[in-house]
Amino acid sequence: MKPRCIWAAAFALGGCAGRQSVLAPAGEEASTLHGLLGLTLIVCGIAYLLVLVFLGAALWRSRLRLNHEPALAATPDDRRLSLGLAGWAGVMTIGIFLLAAASFLVDRTLARHDEAAAGDIRITGHQWWWRIEYRNPAGTGWIETANELHLPQGRPTRIDIRAADVIHSFWIPNLSGKIDMIPGRANHLTLTPHRLGWVRGQCAEFCGLQHARMALDVKVETPHDYAAWLSGQARPAAAASAPEAERGLTLITTGTCGSCHSIRGTSAQARAAPDLTHVAARRSLAAGTLPMTREALMGWITNPQALKPGAEMPASTLPPADMLAIATYLEGLR
């Protein structure tokens, strides 16, 4: 593994450290695929080298015998070259057999991961965000959140993959290969992360205007931290702590916000847009478009069309003081 990482780093300017990179696997599936990538690169590298050596030799040979005798004629094929052709066919067949076998074995390995895993998470692709639901370990039903995926370390987690509108593709390169989210079809993917910390995922199938801004933060935690985080997510929204925040909540539930968004524990219960119950605990806003700060929150609710043109969320017509109240309330939703 290591030498390949060095190889990759040398070329990819530190790609091994990437938070969204095939070259820095942080999970079992991605490691397996990284191994297959290494093998494939070696086989293809040898094949390319053989072609270059033969071509170089042919060009060098032609320099040595640079005679311009004009005799142009149909020439019978050279016997030694014919043997070379047969040999080359043999070399290619061996290489291809090797790759086909390795590919087949890797496929079976990934399939075995699938069987072992429990289906605890559902992710649905929307234009242009991710609805994420966790099976509630304490009781029944599902806990909904958006745009930030938490996973327990060292445990295979099976994710059910769906789409609400158009085709998207769910891809966290550090953890595994991608799988398309297709309307009318159910897919699934198993992830077994082994490195703690943040990685980044991104939609990989063109899904319309803001395809580029459909990213996903992924945090790999110890099973203990994960359980704690999940029980936090299961709770309803934090109560408004100050009169300003109180006013913000009223504006949300009586205004237009609540007709799309849901905040558990309040009367805002619509499901057309990302769940905001614990929105301020997330790392970023609008599917990886902005970092989660007060300024960004203000900017986003004031004029989302300036930051992510085409997003479903309309610009607000509320006066600035009301915006501030809403932002103050949302900031408290941890």
Binding site: V22, A30, T32, L33, L36, L37, T40, L41, C44, A47, Y48, V51, I96, L99, A100, A102, S103, V106, D107, L110, S169, W171, P173, S176, G177, K178, I179, A204, E205, F206
Partner: peptide, 23 residues
């Protein structure tokens, strides 16, 4: 072209292609 052919060999592998396709 041989580079393109060989990267085609890489994308031909179904599991490996999941890391390569649409990138």
């Amino acid at each position: 072209f041989v580079i393109g052919g060989l990267s085609g060999v890489m994308t031909a592998s179904a599991p490996l292609d999941l890391q390569l396709t649409d990138t």
